[in-house]
Design a protein around this nucleic acid. Structure first.
Lengths: 246, 246
DNA sequence: CGTTGAGTTGACCATCGTCAACAGGAGTGG
DNA sequence: CCACTCCTGTTGACGATGGTCAACTCAACG
């Protein structure tokens, strides 16, 4: 069973026991997200505006260029966020993990498309309602502002990776970056889940599938990582961090 | 005389006549910036918090990793924003033009360095004071949020350029993007000022100086652009837009 | 004038992309 | 249950885009 299937499975079975309250707990758990800025009463109020949704793998959450009507809070599973060029070239601008918010940018149209990498659960908010809610909560707006600022910072880091790093460094920094994000969700795990395909990684790093595969193979041959089904394990964290930091 | 010298010259001569009021007018003029969200009284209040500054070309505004103590509003001249890798590789994450704000991200440390490309004038705000001011103006915070969102969107566009475009397309989209930004400042001008060096363009696009030079030469040879001192002129807008959009 | 730094151009080369073949696993239908 | 297809991932051979190194021009500046 894949990591994400397992996650979703536990999700669903809990749902069966606890009903919608589980969703509540799940959102509440991500204290680093939007909700971390809220008191219990505010959180309950916000939660009443939300609509729980489930997506199958490959299902679209929203599409580039369409009017942005919703805000999403991912509660389980992961998604890829990407832009397409007219000729089919693709750039993945990010991966969304549980606890991440999508659609915070307040633009009237989606700047990119998003689809599910795995079975995925999310809370959806109508943009109108969400917008009205934050208008009454200045501290929440500050939180949102901070989150968008953080995303901007990540995007700038990725610009360095895309513009100035070698293929090997790109793969290393991708693994390090992903490890850091998974660590918030399951600090104990020594394995980095990779719910995305090699093609997705390539489109995130500005490489080709073949180059990504070769670099992973090389790192594995040199005992820096161990490739496992749907993930990798870091064997030599110092070496790979050296590659990633340059 | 270079474009920016001319700009600064007119700036200084006006200052001689009108004193500090000119700064007021200058900031006020950039209605698309932060100040566009403010009424006259609020603007005056904000302006009292500001400190007019002048920088010479190459002078640092602030440095990557240092505590972020200030917010800047560029009133004339331009700046480059960049990140350095330990081994000296550089990625320029953006260029700041008159009317642009720097330091809106509200992080406690600067995510990048900034220095002046040309003689530059700016209004500086102490972060504390600026922060207190916006706390009392929710609509200004929304505006700020919108501006950071816009920057995030630009950064994601640049990720596509860096990851998935050829050298020629990179240069074309750079010129188109810059043209759009200059157009807000001087809609009449047919020439795109290039206050940055070829090396700067290269470090923005993830290329080398030589490649940038070759691509510009090629575009000029094919009569798509005309290279003039400190700028370029677009001769065949359709062709270059086709290259940029892909 | 001599120096310095930006820009251009050419020759050569390496990293990474392209094309192709193949292995393995999942799903499907006989 | 097996054959078949499809998709992902891996590996190899080859090639092209863009990088490296070098030489040169030119303008700015003392």
């Amino acid at each position: 069973m894949r990591f994400e299937d397992a996650l979703l499975e536990s999700h669903h079975s809990s749902l069966r026991h606890a009903g919608i309250c589980l969703e509540w707990e799940r959102c509440r758990g991500y204290r680093f997200g939007v909700c971390g800025a809220l008191g219990d009463r505010e959180f309950a109020e916000l939660h009443r505006l939300s609509q729980p949704l489930a997506f199958t793998a490959r299902e679209m959450l929203f599409e580039q260029g369409e009017p942005a009507t919703s805000v999403f809070n991912i509660t389980s599973g992961s998604a890829r966020l990407y832009k397409l060029l007219p000729d089919g070239r693709r750039q993945i601008v990010g991966f969304a993990l549980p606890g991440d918010f999508l659609g915070l940018s307040m633009a009237d149209r989606n700047a990119f498309s998003a689809d599910a990498l795995t079975p995925l659960a999310a809370c959806r908010f109508q943009r109108r309602g969400f917008s009205n809610f934050i208008d009454t909560k200045p501290h929440l707006l500050r939180r949102l502002h901070g989150m968008v600022s953080h995303e901007l910072s990540l995007a700038q880091d990725q610009m360095v990776v895309l513009g100035r790093r070698t293929a090997e460094e790109k793969v290393a920094s991708f693994l390090i970056g992903l490890r850091k994000r998974w660590a918030r969700l399951s600090p104990s795990s020594v394995t980095i889940p990779l719910p995305m395909t090699r093609q997705d990684i390539a489109d995130f790093l500005g490489l080709t599938v073949e180059t990504v595969s070769r670099m992973l193979t090389r790192l594995a041959r040199e005992k820096v990582i161990l490739i496992v089904p749907d993930g990798v394990r870091l064997l030599d964290v110092a070496r790979i961090e050296a590659l990633a930091e340059s």
